[in-house]
Design a protein around this nucleic acid. Sequence first.
RNA 1: GGAGGGGUUCCCGAGUGGCCAAAGGGAUCAGACUGUAAAUCUGACGCGAAAGCUUCGGUGGUUCGAAUCCACCCCCCUCCA
Length: 435
Amino acid sequence: MSRALLDDLRARGLIFQVAGEDELPAWLDGGPRTLYCGFDPTADSLHIGSLVPLLMLRRFQLAGHKPIALVGGATGLIGDPSFKAQERQLNTPDVVAGWVDKLRNQVAQFIDFDDSETCAEVVNNLDWIAGMDVLTFLRDVGKHFSINSMIQKESVKQRIEREGSGISYTEFTYMILQSFDFAELNKRYNCTLQLGGSDQWGNITGGIDLTRRLNGNQVFGLTMPLITKADGTKFGKTESGTVWLDPKRTSPYAFYQFWLGCADADVYRFLKYFTFLDVSEIEEIERADAENQGRPEAQAVLAREVTRLVHGEAGLAAAQRITEALFLGSIESLDENDLGQLRQDGLPASSISREEFPETLTQLLTDAGMASSGKQVKDALGRSAVTINGRAIGWENNADVATCFSPELALHGRFYLVKLGKKKYHLFEVSPASG
RNA sequence: GGAGGGGUUCCCGAGUGGCCAAAGGGAUCAGACUGUAAAUCUGACGCGAAAGCUUCGGUGGUUCGAAUCCACCCCCCUCCA
């Protein structure tokens, strides 16, 4: 069973490095094992960069192991320096504590809590680090670490060697805290495997060494590759910023769109990373796409699968509903309920009364968040890239908001769907002047 | 504490008295082409519809005029103690 798991992970390209590679397969075969992966609270939500490790925990659980998701209430107060070019700004304890609560819930949705032998756990390292005093830390933990080897770690090398950067003692200590987490989870839960991104290798091996020294136990580490894109740009960012897992930050619709816009060169790889579809199934999709000229199927499958994993069936349905309405169907065909529904589903929207209309369209659309400056709106208007309920608007109409939103053009008396460029939509619900 | 090097518009990075809203690159936005791709080409890219207004770590000063010169302060880095 577990060898099959490792084979599958390898086929998916999800294994970057393994600590204890020779013994790990047999160890996993020997029964349900406990493993963990840590997530630091650096914001009130995780983003899709954390998706691979989260799904990895689930993969292990499905294969009969017990996953622990660790939320770094303590480490989040320190800041991981690994491969970071600069020292990070510290967040206040109450802010971090708030984020911990959010992440707890988020992390929990990917693993099962079923009271069985493989029941998942969510833990917070603040529970065992907060109470430790400095002397205990320095004498019982710090003594096991050699500065000589710590400064050799690739993850902090650039901070130490590169001119113009530096590292504080605080961040330098991060590795020791994470190492201690592993030893502590080993003691508490008999946890014997830590997962992490490839940037975590140094921290993970640190934990393996410490666990051996402190508990006398052999434990394992496994890292996943950095997700790259064929065009060299950073994965997980879009024009509007980071793609978050929290639907309040990134709507299911926007999330769905992100995956739908995935490059051909990346999409089959991403199917292996981010879905539970069989590798053979994915290869079949690739083959079929290659045969059919024209638009590939893979993006649609990827968007569907990942959106369902993160936002559930309802979130997926909402995302697809908007997508179909905007890109496939015609807007006029939507009835009043549909338009209200789109707004519920996460299509950007706002309400405004006629008397609140600003002087210019540039002002209105900038305020609505469709563009970051009036210049962008001006540019778009000048290229007839703006439509209101399907009618093209030009720069000459800029100062004539009332005409652009004339009552005769309204859908169902109050809705105006404004399109800027090819992909940006905003629904205005206009109420008559109330006096 | 001492010596030296830095802080420029989202990022990198030019600019050392007027020609600077500030080169160049990246990112981003829009157009053409397309598959709601990629690549490429074109345009925009401090704010403002415009007149105009506000930027070059901070505060004062010199000057007709300062991102550029002076003073003090803050922050970062390197080396020494």
